[in-house]
């Protein structure tokens, strides 16, 4: 069972939900797929026992073979390779690694070399629990490849939680693709509702099952509940805003270690999503 936790708006409690659900389960793997700004590890405080570089490839031009014909520059959609007067310029950070320049080069002057765009960290967090997170190198344009890698190495896990990036762009799609169920972390504010609508649109387009956890449920208005009812969307749970919760989260601690109220909510979500046996 693969469960993705996502949200349109940032800061609605994706990571809070992910790490607290993770801590409430006995045998589980969590991946933090928000590789631009990964935070789950701050709460789980596990030990990294293994790390791997994630690479992309970019072109290198053999200037002995290159005739400066200009075909590679014409083909590249990303301005990453530009033939100039006496040499061909390559901007590795703009390269999307599509392989086009090598294909079009008539003299075979182009080969590819690796460049790390980020890392994956493997952590053990107690018995039967594994946690992996990815981190995109600052300045790189896309973390999709790192997310795909994280998903690939965990594809056989029995229970997998995926802490997804916020929003509805390509990296969110990469994180949620293939999930059996998605949990939307939402907020009952006008911004929260508007952003959640976009997520609902995305999940319906991707034909994924989902339910909603309304976080900070006492800070806002009722519009979100009207929306859920009208759309026939399952409301899994509500979590109140309390200043003490904000402080616990701010310090990087787990709510389930401090609050019976939150422990019960996590168990209820687990029952509804995974079934009685897991709770």
């Amino acid at each position: 069972m693969k469960i993705a936790i996502l949200s349109g708006k940032g800061g609605t409690g994706k990571t809070t939900l992910s790490v607290n659900l993770f801590s409430s389960l006995n045998k589980v793997t969590l991946i933090d797929a928000d590789v631009e700004e990964p935070n789950s590890h701050l709460f789980l405080k596990g030990n990294t026992y293994h790390e791997e570089d994630i690479n992309k490839q970019y072109p290198v031009v053999d200037h002995d073979l290159c005739t400066l014909c200009g075909k590679c520059g014409e083909f590249c959609n990303f301005n990453a390779i530009i033939p100039a007067k006496k040499k061909v310029l390559v901007f590795d950070d703009l390269c999307h690694d599509c392989g086009g320049c090598k294909l079009v080069c008539p003299t075979n002057a182009i080969s590819y070399t690796d460049k790390a765009i980020g890392k994956i960290f493997y952590q053990s967090v107690g018995d039967n629990k594994q946690f992996l997170y990815g981190r995109l190198t600052v300045g790189e344009v896309s973390g999709v490849r790192i997310i795909e890698y994280l998903k690939n190495v965990t594809k056989k896990e029995e229970v997998l939680l995926i802490d997804s990036p916020p929003g509805t762009s390509c990296s969110t799609v990469a994180a949620i693709e293939g999930s059996d169920y998605c949990i939307i972390a939402a907020e009952p504010t006008p911004f929260g509702l508007s952003d959640m609508r976009m997520v609902v649109e995305l999940l319906r387009e991707q034909k994924l099952d989902f339910g909603v956890v309304v976080n900070k449920s006492n800070l806002g208005n009722d519009d979100i509940y009207k929306y859920l009812e009208e759309e026939g969307i399952e409301l899994l749970e509500n979590i109140d805003f309390r200043e003490e919760f904000a402080k616990i989260i701010a310090r990087g601690e787990l709510l389930v270690d401090h609050s019976e109220y939150v422990r019960n909510i996590m168990n209820s979500i687990i029952k509804k999503v995974l079934g009685e046996t897991y709770a």
């Binding site: 990303f78 301005n79 530009i82 100039a84 007067k85 310029l89 901007f91 344009v141």
Partner: peptide
């Protein structure tokens, strides 16, 4: 023609001048 590029406008603008 480089001014509306999402990224890599710098290199492309020089190509235009070249």
């Amino acid at each position: 023609t480089a001014k509306d590029e999402g990224s890599g406008a710098g290199g492309k603008a020089v190509k235009v001048l070249g």
